[in-house]
């Protein structure tokens, strides 16, 4: 019985998640960053603080990249010529660094939440 309850709770969590997704208030304007010639363009993205948002990461290069941010707990591989959408939670005002983990010395940038 407790296992059934656990499974029900998990199912309820999933259902709540789906409802919350439908009601998500992420901004319609999706900032984009593009990795081109080993650098992020733009290298700095400004977003509204305290509001969830989505961001598009485009890999315009010829090799794979790994979009990573320690502060934002993000680590996503982007294949050459592909793009991904990264969901971000509401951020406190501040600056959050990101980088391409495969080319750390050149490909760096930041998200500024204001």
């Amino acid at each position: 019985m407790p296992v059934k309850n656990l499974m029900r709770s998990l199912a309820a969590a999933c259902a709540l998640g789906l409802i919350a997704t439908a009601a998500a208030s992420a901004s319609d304007l999706i900032p984009e960053i593009k990795l081109h010639n080993g650098r992020f363009e733009p290298a700095q993205v400004t977003v509204k603080a305290e509001s969830p948002f989505k961001m598009r990461v485009i890999n315009a290069g010829k090799s794979a990249i790994e979009f990573e941010s320690f502060e934002l707990h993000r680590e996503r591989v982007v294949q050459p010529g592909e793009a991904i959408t990264v969901y971000m939670p509401a951020l406190n005002a501040g600056t959050y660094k990101f980088f391409d983990d495969f080319h750390r010395s050149t490909a760096q940038g930041s998200i500024v939440a204001k």
Partner: peptide, 11 residues
Amino acid sequence: LFEQDELPVNL
């Protein structure tokens, strides 16, 4: 499942 932070809890 889903995208990270697309749901209130990542699954």
